[in-house]
Design a protein around this nucleic acid. Structure first.
Lengths: 199, 199
DNA sequence: TTTTTTTGACTGAACGATTGGTCAAAAAAA
DNA sequence: TTTTTTTGACCAATCGTTCAGTCAAAAAAA
């Protein structure tokens, strides 16, 4: 069925797909989903419009694909929490890696935020986001309980809000000279007093 | 020269304008600016498409009008800061009134956030937003200095981020059962220790 | 009072531009 | 040859916007 070696074929496919996806991320993040036309994506990717429909069924499927990939990245920082250790250290690591994730790919997060705050988001996507949020809240609460923080649940909500707020400001309002590192360290440091003294 | 009394005329005009603006806020907030059509606004407002252009030059001017009104509301909570008093009390008041503002008109804030996180925002609007943000930061810093908080500038950034983060979560992610009051009180309470003991 | 004139809010068909999406055919690779 | 990638002209639908025209009501005239 395939006259070409499937391996090299896949390389070509992947290359074209990547070009399209990167162009789409760039434009969706900057202009928003609805304000971005298929033609402009194709132009940015350096391909013909028709080819886009060879790889993606529709504009919304292209968005879906990007969102799926982006959201799966979010789970990564969670992995470090499995191993045992001082909850203060684990919390610091979680916060560090969460911020690092955003810093390394601002465009992607701009897109995610713009989609979530835009029109009636596809229910599926909203559900994934909501579940992600719940996951963060639970882990925060769990760690706060370990740390014996007075009101673990409330504190979890507050930390989640602070992190998202910092991200928002960093990404949108004050991209130049925003003291991200300092704020990050201050957030982490406030929990230092809960570190266990044991050896 | 004027066959109809200008006073009654103005009433009619105001009524229609309000109908259009309310419909636009609703739809812009829910669907986003670009995904909302003029036809749908007219339909929701219960008027003909043409009438919209009798009152507004264009779709973007309609958005501008709404944004201008919305942004002017933001300055209100600032007014209370002029009078003298314990900075802790003033801070509490500022936080209270800021949250109250959002709670009383979620749709408007959804719209504001969606516009700010959407496509390349009109430069004018972004400037206003940025200035607003700077204003908040400066007031926070000033109050923190009065309160003798260790790192007033950093703490200002953090508080601004927390407030915006809480708003974001309240508005979008967890509208049902979000413990807004509790978080608000916790935020306020953390500064209680800086209250002056003097009489 | 009754009639006529004048106003501007309001309508909806129609406009050109642009959209997301299709498809026959060329190009490329085997 | 066969298969797949790639192209760009093309389509119907929808977009924001325009505009000729309707109509209820107020002012002016009788």
């Amino acid at each position: 069925m395939a006259p070409r070696t499937p391996i090299q074929l896949e390389k070509v496919r992947a290359k074209s797909r990547t070009k399209i996806i990167n162009a789409a991320i760039e434009l969706f993040a900057r202009k928003g989903y609805h304000a971005t036309s298929i033609s402009s994506i194709a132009a940015k990717a350096g391909i013909a419009k028709g080819l886009l429909y060879h790889y993606f069924k529709s504009k919304s499927e292209l968005l879906d694909e990007i969102l799926k990939n982006s959201l799966s990245e979010v789970d990564e920082p969670m992995q470090a929490l499995m191993m045992p250790g001082d909850p203060v250290d684990k919390m610091a690591l979680l916060i560090e890696s969460t911020f690092a994730m955003v810093q390394s790919d601002i465009k992607r997060w701009k897109l995610l935020v713009s989609i979530m705050t835009q029109y009636e988001v596809l229910i599926r996507i909203r559900k994934i986001f909501s579940k992600m949020m719940q996951g963060y809240l639970e882990i925060f609460e769990h760690l706060f309980k370990e740390m014996k923080v007075p009101q673990p649940k409330l504190e979890a909500y507050r930390l989640a809000a602070t992190i998202d707020g910092v991200m928002l400001h960093y990404i949108y309002y004050l991209p130049d000279g925003y003291p991200l590192e300092e704020i990050k360290n201050e957030i982490i440091q406030q929990y230092a007093k809960y570190r266990k003294k044991k050896k």
